[in-house]
Simulated scan of single mutants.
Amino acid sequence: MAMSSSESATALKRTVIIAIFAAVAVVLSIVEAQIPLAGVGLMPGAKLGFANIMILTCIYFLRGRDVLVLVILKTLLTAFLLGTLSSLLFSLFGSLFSFIVMFALVKLGRRKFSVIGISIAGGLAHNTGQLLAASFVFNSTSIFYYLPVLLITGIITGIAVGFAVRYVVDSLSKISLFEEFLNGPGH
């Protein structure tokens, strides 16, 4: 069945939004990689989660499968530019777990959960997913001793990302490209 011109235009808009968000998420990941959190007393590998700004923002505008494409694009591109195979695995586990949790919370009702609360849940899920991947790779559960530190950093970064997402969603809602996507996931 052929798409109508309006369906084709909407599909093109989705593709453009995903591409822009993926590019911004990769740039944010590169900027984040330049900030040495291990040097300020946090655990090695701890990150601020700037790319989650784009993921959570996308959840508020596009369908789940669109956001999943964004998550995979961001993870692959960032790993290609900055990482190794093991960092790809850790990032993929964390990103997918975070996406699933945040998407589910938005689908359950964005009026039940604040953007900041959803972002915190995403940060906690990302850190937990990374630990699960590390536990699998190293065949050890002793890696979970990092969990308390990661939960604290997940809460702090989740709050910061949540504030940023609230601002970005409000700002993008005023741009004509995003008008037809204002009703959120499932469109």
Rank of each mutant, 00 (worst) to 15 (best):
A19Q: 06
A22S: 14
A22G: 05
A22W: 00
A23G: 15
A23R: 08
A25S: 13
V26P: 04
S29P: 11
S29H: 10
V31R: 09
V31A: 15
V31D: 09
E32R: 05
E32G: 13
E32Q: 12
E32F: 10
E32D: 15
Q34Y: 09
L37Q: 08
G39R: 06
G39T: 06
V40A: 05
G41A: 04
G45K: 09
G49Q: 01
F50S: 02
N52C: 09
I55P: 04
I55R: 01
L56G: 00
C58W: 00
I59Q: 01
I59N: 03
R65E: 15
R65Q: 15
V67C: 06
V67M: 01
L68D: 08
L68Q: 08
V71L: 09
I72V: 15
L73D: 04
L77G: 12
L77C: 11
T78V: 03
T78R: 02
A79V: 00
S86W: 06
S86Y: 09
L88P: 04
F90V: 11
S91H: 07
L96Q: 06
L96T: 03
F97K: 00
S98E: 10
I100S: 03
I100D: 01
M102A: 13
A104Y: 02
A104V: 13
L108D: 11
L108T: 12
G109Y: 06
G109V: 11
R110M: 14
R110I: 14
K112D: 09
S114V: 09
S114C: 10
V115T: 12
G117L: 12
S119K: 05
S119T: 06
I120Y: 04
A125C: 02
H126K: 07
T128C: 12
T128L: 15
T128A: 14
L131E: 02
